[in-house]
Design a protein around this nucleic acid. Structure first.
Lengths: 343, 343
DNA sequence: CTGTTAGCGCTTTCAG
DNA sequence: CTGAAAGCGCTAACAG
C-alpha cells in the first residue's frame, strides 16, 4: 500500500501512536468513516471497510482508551479501595475481582488506605477525579460511619462493600453470615466441655467483630462456661494475650481471623499445650497448612467473595436503577489443615 | 454568595460534578481565568483569585483528572503487570510500589497475567491504550524473550522489570544477587558435611532459576557431594519430590523460594525428619514464622524491591534520556523464624 | 453510503 | 490583568 508512505519511506507505525486522523489522511476519507468502519457500522461499504481495517491492522492502530472513555463520559475503570495487602485473604479477593474485571473489559486501580480514614477519603476523591464507573470498598479500621460516601451517591457512582463493613442501610454489601457461623463455633466449643474459653476478635470498631462476638456469645448456653472476649489486631498481639490467658487456665480459643488464629496457635506451641488446647475460628484455609496443626474453622473463600462483590458492582454499573442489597456468601465449618495453596 | 443560585435555590454542588465552565458561568468570567486562578497563576488579580477559590471550595470543585491528563497527553497512571497475587512476597512488593506511586501522585492499574504470555501481551497493549506513563513488569513463566516489549520502546513508555526476569540487555531491572547468594547457601550447606543434597528451583524458563542454580553449583566444592537439581512450581509439587528424595537418603535441601521451602519442610515433617534435615533457601522471612521451624535463609524484602523498582520507573518517567540500568538490592543470610508479619 | 460539525473538560497560546 | 479560540482523540447527531 503506497498510502503508508505519506510520511516518507520509513514505516511510521513503529514510531508513534497512530490515530484515526492519521488513517483518515492516508486513505483520504474522513475520521468518522474510519471510526465507523472500525466498529463495523453497517453504513460503510464492504470494500472500504476492509481497506480501512487492513491498514489499521498493518499500522497496529489501537484506539486511545483515554480519549474514547473521556468522550463517552465513562472510564471503564473501577476503583478498589482496601486497607492493606494483607497476605491472608485479600490476595484471593483481588484475584476474584480481577477475574470479573477482565470479563467485563475493565481495568482496576487499587488504592490502599493503610487503615486510615483520611486516606480512605482521599481514595474516594481520587476515584471521582478519575471518573471510575464503580468502587469496591473494604473499610478501614478507623471508619465508623459512611458519611464520606455521600459524594458517590451524588455522582451516581455505585459502590459495593466487602470484607470490613459497618452496620448500615442503603449500601450493597457482600458478607458471610458471621453471626450464625460464630454461633456454630461456640456450639462446637461447648461440645468439648471446656470451662474457660476465650474469643479473639479484631478491631472493636468493626461490625464484623461485633457480629462474630454476638454470634459466639449466643452460642454459649452453659452458664458455667467462663468466656473472655479479647480484641487483637495482629498475630503478635494475639499471641501475647493468648499466653496470658493460658496461664489463667483458658484452654478453648475462638479466633475470628487468620491473624489471631496464628497468634493463638503460636502461643499454644510455645507453652507446649497444643494437645490440651481446642482452637476454632474463621479462616480461608490457606494459612492452615503452614501451621502443621489441624483445627476446625469456618471456611470463607476470598476469591468467591471478590468475584461476588465485583459481579454485584457490574450489575449496579449496568442497571439504571441502583437497588442496594446485602449478599451472604455461604460458608461451612471444616476441619483443616486443608488444601495446599494452589501454585 | 448569590451566584450559587444561578441554577435555582438548591445547592447544585451536591447534584453533579462541577466543571470549570460552571464556575466561569457563575462568576461571569471565562473558563481560562478560572483555570489560571485555581493554579495560582500570577496573572490573575488577588481579589478575583480568592473569590474563585472560595466558590470552588464551596462547591467541592475538583478537576476531572481524565480531562487534564488527556489534554496533557499523559495519564498519571502506571501499569503493574504480574503473574498472580501470590501470598508470598508479591503483596509486599505491591505495598512498596503503592507507597512510591502515592508519593508521586500517581495511580496504578494492576494487570495479572496468570503466567500466560498471551495475557502478558494483552496487558501491555492495554497499558498502551490507557496511555500509562510507565510499566512495572514481573514476567510470566512462559516469557522467554522480550520481543513484545518493543512497542513500549516505540511509544517511549519506560518499563522496569522486577522479580521474574530473563537475561537481556537494554532494560532496567531490579534484582538481588541471586548467583552470589545461592553460592553462599551452598557453602553453608557444605559446612554441614552432608553427602546427599538437593537444590529445589522454580520454573526452568526463569533466569532466576538458572542463576540460583549456577550459584549453588559453584558453591559446592566437595566433589563427593551428590547434588540433585529439581524444578517445582508449587509447594505441593515440592513436597512430593522432597519425599522421594528423602527416601533416597537426601538430607540437605536448598529451596529457591518460599513456595518450595514450604513443601520441603512439610515433607520433612511428614517423615519425622525435621531434626536430621538441613534446609536453607530464599525467603522474605514472612512465611517462616508459620513454619514453626528455624531455617537459614537469604532474606529478600519484597517491599524494598517494590519501592526500588517504582523509584527507578519514576526516574525514567521524569528524565528525558532513558538510560537502562540493573540494580542489585542487597541481601544477607539470616536465621529465622524471624519477625512476625507486621499487622 | 460518506462527510461535516460539535463537543467531552481542560490548558495554553495569542490577543487585547 | 483577562478573554477568545484552538485542540488533545474520538464519537454521534445531522446533513447530504
Amino acid at each position: 500500500l503506497a498510502n503508508i508512505n505519506l510520511f516518507g519511506d520509513q514505516d511510521i507505525s513503529v514510531m508513534i501512536k497512530i490515530t484515526i486522523k492519521d488513517l483518515a489522511k492516508m486513505l483520504k476519507v474522513s475520521p468518522s468513516t474510519i471510526s465507523r468502519a472500525l466498529k463495523d457500522h453497517p453504513d460503510i461499504g464492504q470494500e472500504l471497510k476492509t481497506r480501512i481495517k487492513n491498514l489499521a491492522k498493518e499500522l497496529n492502530y489501537s484506539p486511545n482508551s483515554m480519549a474514547v472513555n473521556f468522550r463517552k463520559g465513562k472510564s471503564k475503570l473501577i476503583g478498589v479501595i482496601l486497607p492493606k495487602f494483607y497476605r491472608n485473604f485479600i490476595p484471593d479477593v483481588i484475584d476474584g475481582i480481577s477475574f470479573v474485571v477482565d470479563e467485563n473489559q475493565y481495568q482496576m486501580i487499587i488504592l490502599p488506605t493503610n487503615d486510615l480514614l483520611s486516606k480512605e477519603k482521599d481514595a474516594i476523591q481520587k476515584c471521582c477525579d478519575y471518573c471510575v464507573d464503580g468502587i469496591l470498598l473494604a473499610l478501614s479500621n478507623e471508619t465508623v460511619d459512611l458519611g464520606h460516601l455521600k459524594i458517590l451517591d451524588d455522582l451516581e457512582i455505585p459502590v459495593v462493600l466487602f470484607d470490613k463493613s459497618i452496620e448500615t442501610d442503603g449500601y450493597t454489601q457482600v458478607l458471610i453470615d458471621d453471626r450464625l457461623m460464630a454461633e456454630r463455633c461456640a456450639q462446637k466449643m461447648e461440645q468439648k466441655s471446656i470451662s474457660k474459653v476465650a474469643a479473639f476478635l479484631g478491631h472493636e470498631n468493626l461490625t464484623i467483630s461485633k457480629r462474630r462476638k454476638d454470634g459466639f456469645q449466643s452460642g454459649i448456653l452453659n452458664e458455667h462456661t467462663q468466656v473472655h472476649y479479647v480484641h487483637a489486631t495482629s498475630s503478635a498481639e494475639a499471641k501475647e494475650k493468648a499466653l496470658t490467658l493460658m496461664e489463667q487456665g483458658v484452654s478453648g480459643f475462638f479466633g475470628m481471623s487468620d491473624e489471631v488464629l496464628v497468634g493463638i496457635l503460636a502461643a499454644a506451641k510455645a507453652q507446649n499445650k497444643i494437645n490440651e488446647t481446642y482452637v476454632i475460628g474463621f479462616s480461608d484455609g490457606k494459612t492452615i497448612p503452614f501451621l502443621h496443626e489441624e483445627i476446625d474453622y469456618v471456611h470463607h473463600d476470598g476469591k468467591e467473595i471478590g468475584e461476588t462483590a465485583a459481579r454485584l458492582l457490574f450489575d449496579l454499573i449496568k442497571s439504571p436503577e441502583k437497588i442496594s442489597k446485602v449478599i451472604q456468601v455461604n460458608t461451612e465449618i471444616v476441619r483443616g489443615k486443608l488444601e495446599w495453596p494452589k501454585k
